[in-house]
Design a protein around this nucleic acid. Structure first.
Lengths: 205, 205, 205, 205
DNA sequence: AATGAATGAGCATTCATTCAT
DNA sequence: TATGAATGAATGCTCATTCAT
C-alpha cells in the first residue's frame, strides 16, 4: 500500500477508516465483516482492497492513528507546565478527556489488546506512554516531590488507574470526565491513606 | 445441560475445560476451534457437545469458575485481618499471587472483556470485587485511616493498579509477584507524592 | 428385531411409539431426534435400540399400525351395508371420523408421503384402500348405480376428496367431522352439477 | 438479499434455482445439501450465498415462482370461457397439464406441505387457488348450473381430485394427462352416481 | 434391560480475499 | 477507481448409532 492518493481518494480512505472504527467498536473486530464496512459506505468490495491491503492492516492503521492523536493531545496539555507533579496531573486529565471524547477508539484499544495480532501495537503505545511519563516522574523524584520507587512501576500504575476509572466510571456509569479526572489525580498523587494515618506511619520510621 | 455426570464424566468435563482454557489463552477464543479442543483431548467432536451446550457456554463456565476461585482466594487471605488497611493490602497481595499462578485465566479475563458476549460476565466479577472491597474502604474511612473519597472510585482504582501492574510487570516482564505486590500496595496506599511534599501540602491547609 | 417381549417390554415399546408419533407429528420426522424421544420417555438411548433397529424402522412401524387400524375401522363400518353406494358412503364417513380422531397419525401419513423412504409404505396403504373400494364400485356399476368409468379412477378420486376436505376443513378450519363427511359424500356421489343442469345435459345425449 | 443483479448474475440465480429444484424433487429437501447444488452447477459454495440468504429462502423462492407460474397458466386457460362450468373445467385441465409438464415442481409442492417451514407457503397457494375458483362456483350456482353447497368445500374437493388423480395416475402410472384430465372433470362435474340412479333419487324428492 | 458416554460423518453458513469487466 | 461475482477453507453444531459397564 502506501499508495499515493488523490484528494478524493484520501477522503474515501478516511471514510472507510471511520466507518470501520465505529463498527469495530460497536460489534467487535471479528463480527464486523468487510462486507459490513463497504456496505455501510455504499461501495463495492474492490474499493476496500484498493485502499487497504487487508482487514488487519486497516485495524492497525486505525489504532496507530488513534494512539498518535492521543499522544499529541497529552503533549499539548503538558507543554507549559514546569512542575513535574503538575505535568503528570495535566497528562492524566488530558488522557481522561481524550478517552471520553473518543470513546469508540478507547473501546478499540481494549479490543486490540485482547487480540494476539494487535496486542503488540497496544503494548508499543503503552510503552510509549510510559516512556513519555518517565522523565517527569524522575524529575519529581530528584526534586523530592515523588517517593523514590521504580519509576516504571509508578508510570504503569498511573496508566492502570486512568484506564480503569475512565472505562468504568466515564464510559459505563456516565460520570462527568472532569470529576473522574479529579478522582484519578487524587488517587495517583496521594493514594488512599489519610493524612492522619500517614503521619502516624511516619512517626514509626 | 445440567446433566447428571458420573465420576468419569466429571473428569472429562474438567479435562475439556482445562484444555480449552489453555488454548483460548494461547490462541484466543475465535481462533481456537472445537476441533482443536477435542483433538487435543483425543476424543470425538460429539463429546464436546455432550458436556457443553456451545463453545460460548464453555467459555462462560471457565470464566465463572475462575472468578469464583479468585474470590475464594481473596476471602481466605483477608479472613484473619482485623485492620481495614491490612485487609485491603492482603487482598491486593492475594490477587497478584493468584493472577501470577493462573496466568492463562488472567489472560482469559482480558479476552472476555473485549467480547460483547462475555464482557457482562467480567463486569459482574469486577462489580463483585468492588463490592467485596467496599466495606473495608468504608471501615477505613470511619477509622480515619483512609481519605474520605468516593469509596467506589477507590475500589476501582485499586483494581486498575493491580490489574495493570500484574499484567505488565509479572506476566510480560517476569518480575517476581511479591515485588510487584509490594509496589502495588505502596502505590495504592500512599500514591506517588513524597512524604516531604505531602507535609508541604498539608501545611497549606 | 421381532424380539420376544415381556409384558413390560411391550408397554415400553408402545410408549416409545406413541411418544415418537406425537413428536413426529408436531415437529416433523427429521427435527425429532432419538434423544428427544427417549428424553420424553425418560429413559436412556440404549432402550430405544433395544426395541427398534433404527429410527426408520420405528416410523415405519408407526405407519403400518396406523394404516392397519384405519383399515379395520373402515371394514367394520362397511360390514353390514348391502348397498354398494351406501358401503362407499359408510367408508367415507368412517375415514373422515378416524382421521379426525387420529389427527397426528393423519399428519404422519402426509409427512411420510413426502419422504422417499416412507412413500412406498403410504403408497401401499393407498393401493390397499383402492383395492378395498374397488369391489363396491364395480358392484355399483353392475347394478347401474354408478356411472361406468374406470373404477380405479373413481376410487382415487374419492380418496383425494376425503383426504383434502378432512385435512383442510377438519384439521385446519376445525369444522365438525360429520358435516365435512356429509359434504364429501355429496360431492363424491353427485359431483358439482345441479340436477337441472344434469337433466339438460342428459337431453343432449 | 434483493441484490441488484447483472444479466450474468440473473442467469446464475436461475441456474441455481433450477438445479436445486430438480435435486430437491429427486432426493428431498434435507438430503440435498448446498454442496450438492453448487457442485452440480460447478461453482464454489460462496456463490450460493451470494444469491440466496439460506437454503430455506431458496426453496421458498422456488415454491413461490412455481405457484405463480401455475396460476398464470390457469388464468390464461380460463380467460376466454364465459360459462362457469366450462371455466372450472378449463382450470382443471390446465392444472393437470401443468402438473404433468412440471412434475418435479409438483413433487416439491408435496415435499413442502410436509415441512413445518414451508407448509404455510403451500397453504397460501392453495387458498389462492380456492379463491380463484370461488367466483366461478358461485356464478354457476347463481345460474343454477351447480348444486347449492358451500362453495369453499366444492373448491377444495376439486383440488383434492385433481391433485390425487394427477399424482397417482399421471406421475406414477404414467397415464396420458388428457385422459386423466377427462376423468377428473367427469368426476368433479357428475360425481359417481349413474344418471339412472340420479333420476331415481330425484323421484324421491 | 438399561445407562451414560462416545463416535464422526455431515451440514449450513461465514468471510477475507481475488478476479473479470 | 470501481463493481458484482466468485472462491473455498474453515467453523460450530447435530444426530443416528454404537459401546462399555
Amino acid at each position: 500500500m502506501a499508495r499515493r492518493l488523490t484528494a478524493r481518494g484520501e477522503r474515501r480512505r478516511r471514510q472507510l477508516m471511520e466507518v470501520a472504527a465505529e463498527r469495530f467498536a460497536v460489534a467487535g473486530y471479528h463480527p464486523t465483516s468487510i462486507a459490513d464496512i463497504v456496505d455501510a459506505v455504499g461501495v463495492g468490495k474492490g474499493v476496500f482492497y484498493w485502499y487497504f491491503a487487508s482487514k488487519e492492516e486497516l485495524f492497525e492503521q486505525i489504532l496507530v492513528e488513534a494512539q498518535r492523536d492521543l499522544r499529541r493531545t497529552q503533549r499539548a496539555a503538558i507543554a507549559d507546565e514546569p512542575d513535574p507533579l503538575r505535568r503528570i496531573e495535566a497528562g492524566v486529565r488530558a488522557s481522561v478527556a481524550w478517552l471520553d471524547e473518543h470513546r469508540h477508539l478507547f473501546t478499540l484499544f481494549e479490543l486490540a489488546r485482547a487480540d494476539e495480532r494487535f496486542a503488540p501495537v497496544i503494548r508499543r503505545g503503552e510503552e510509549q506512554a510510559v516512556a513519555d511519563t518517565l522523565p517527569h516522574v524522575v524529575a519529581g523524584m530528584d526534586a523530592d516531590l515523588i517517593r523514590r520507587e521504580d519509576p516504571v512501576v509508578v508510570a504503569y500504575a498511573i496508566l492502570g488507574v486512568v484506564d480503569r476509572l475512565t472505562r468504568v466510571l466515564v464510559l459505563e456509569e456516565d460520570r462527568p470526565a472532569e470529576a473522574v479526572a479529579d478522582a484519578a489525580v487524587a488517587f495517583c498523587l496521594q493514594g488512599l491513606v489519610s493524612p492522619a494515618a500517614a503521619r502516624a506511619r511516619l512517626a514509626f520510621r
